[in-house]
Design a binder for these strands. Structure first.
Lengths: 349, 349
DNA sequence: CTCCGAATTGCATACGAATGCAATACTGCC
DNA sequence: GGCAGTATTGCATTCGTATGCAATTCGGAG
């Protein structure tokens, strides 16, 4: 078999309309069905046919129209991924990994980025109109919205969220457990007065972390607790620390921030504005295990989310449910990974 | 007119197939065309018709199928956004902003995330198959790939990239100009020996920054220059600094890192491993103006990319070209914003 | 050479909405 | 009340691919 002698390979006559499977069929002298079959995986087509069609196809620069295909197969091969902007440093990593996981499986990602987590108004409508095969969301939907999605028979996986009454599949990091570890270690090392810096009120993650920490503190009989709230950002981290000191009258023994970025803000404020030494004068801990938490200026004591496993798990959970819509909901919780950094005085053990 | 007395509003009979415009038409006793027109913006439909149709529509839980619509209108209302993972801390911001800009205009984003910038193999094929209306890419495509896209008549906007021979629209931050400012300021303040930390070789941005800096250094007659290369990440930033000192025999007067994250790595390594004081013993500068650059432990002297304006510009440039494909290519370059932080000794002026 | 089963191929139709054109309903005006 | 002009509505077709079914071809065994 010699190769094609024509050097012109993939440059269709310019100015023409996009080639369709009929054009290819006509040029190759076969039926449109044949073309369709050549471009599918499990379809039957002889070697000769395959060659004829392929030759015609790339002479015309043809490629199958995924839109038309989706219409007939009732599968868009797209999933919607919803993120909210706020959880700034952490989600990008999640997003990139999810996208790669889906890509590996031949599934495309339709991205929806919310300004705030509660901006879910139009998103549901959009997703349903585009007939996505599944939804992976790191923003909270209302029960009504979840029901709408459910009525449309579209599988959903919640990322670091759980639906209150609703039953829906989810993948999450066990925030309470992580906070318990942090609190236990801090109390164990002798800290008695605490500052708690929570995140935005419409963030489920923030609420879980805060209540997780508060419950454990109470359980251990700690009563000297001051609470302030920020927005997960660095600047508010600094402001929160200042506010904390003012409210408490003096710096507490330890500060538990709802995420790493705010913890970093607290550290900077403690050092710069109050001249405190971290962790000698005060212990400060975060949550997430983002990149900057490792910067040696901070070396945060924190709980890292096992992002790799979580995204892996979430993606395959969604894909499974797309293949088999009858699967019952499943909730997977991953333990966070305790990081003993240098931003807190902990017992040696 | 009294309202509907039926309390059941949007819950279609479960187990049924998704409602189509024909179903709605049948229930409302009108033609399918009528339904189609009610769900469009500029179509003519009487008030009565609109009401009948809408009532039937949300009784059935109907919503137009964007896939089918795309097939007939030849418009998917989707754009592809391509990012590569590497430029870790900077692109998330870009991505979120772009997505929001497009969303505002009723355009959906199909996301492609590359592991490395050179992993563009299958991406082009994917984008064309999905008939995206336009492409916004922050990864470099080969001339052949760009030609393929061009043949498909899909407008492209390159983000912080320019095509070598090819002519294509682009939005970029003027990296050379930014590096010139940094170099000028450093030399002006008396620095004479330089370390240059470049990023991954397949990153256009990194190459531009490096050559921008080197050219300006040479122009000013500086010859004591040591070059090392990393991957834009924090860890390699640290390693690069160590390598730099070893190659040079001693710490240089100043280090120019290809991005902020590596600059931060350099600072940590300088302080921790060598006990140097920044900026007293050594000046270290970065590029991008990402969040962590502002953390007061670093307070980087850097050049910030005007992300807001760039994404705004890129999005509207692409949308314009989708509306009017005849528009000739246009290249927009934005000046970076010089940030005089505390990581470098600069002249007061 | 004949016949049988398996592998290919073509035909016709379906997917769900948009739209040009023709038919019809309405509007205001004389 | 009649008429011209406009706003609505329906009909029929189109977008590009997949697929069930029937027709055809192919290969090899007897």
């Amino acid at each position: 078999m010699k190769k094609q002698e024509k050097p012109v390979e993939a440059s269709p006559q310019p100015g023409k309309k996009r080639a369709t499977s009929y054009d290819v069929a006509a040029l190759a002298g076969v039926s449109q069905s044949a073309v369709s079959r050549v471009f599918q995986d499990g379809a039957s087509a002889s070697k000769a046919m395959r060659e004829r069609v392929m030759a015609a196809a790339d002479q015309l620069g043809y490629r199958p129209n995924a839109i038309a295909r989706g219409l007939i197969t009732q599968r868009s091969n797209m999933v919607a991924v919803v993120i909210s902007k706020l959880t700034n440093l952490y989600y990008p990593e999640v997003l990139v990994q999810l996208t790669q996981r889906f890509s590996e499986q031949g599934v495309r990602v339709l991205l929806f980025a919310l300004e705030r987590e509660s901006d879910t108004e139009t998103v549901v409508e959009q997703m349903l109109q585009y007939r996505v095969d599944g939804i992976l969301t790191a923003a909270m939907f209302s029960p009504e919205q979840l029901e709408t999605i459910d009525n449309a028979l579209i599988p959903v996986v919640l990322y670091n969220r759980t639906a209150p009454g609703q039953q829906a599949s989810s993948v999450r990091c066990d925030q309470e457990e992580g906070e318990r570890w942090l609190v236990d270690e801090l109390v164990n090392a002798g800290h008695r007065s605490f500052g708690v810096v929570e995140g935005p009120v419409d963030s489920v993650v923030s609420v879980e972390r805060k209540t997780g920490a508060l419950n454990e503190l109470r359980r251990l009989g700690i009563t000297d607790i001051t609470t302030v709230s920020g927005d997960f950002g660095y600047e508010t981290g600094r402001e929160c620390f200042a506010e904390l000191v003012e409210k408490h009258g003096s710096p507490p023994d330890a500060v538990i921030a709802a995420n790493d970025v705010m913890a970093i803000g607290c550290i900077d404020e403690a050092r710069e504005a109050l001249g405190l030494s971290v962790p000698d004068d005060i212990s400060i801990v975060g949550f997430d295990g983002v990149g900057p938490a490792r910067y040696s200026a901070y070396a945060l004591t924190t709980v890292r989310q096992p992002v790799q496993r979580m995204t892996q798990s979430a993606a395959s959970m969604l894909l499974e449910r797309i293949e088999n819509p009858e699967l019952s909901p499943e909730k997977r919780a991953f333990s966070g990974i305790p990081i003993r950094g240098r931003s807190a005085r902990l017992a040696d053990d």
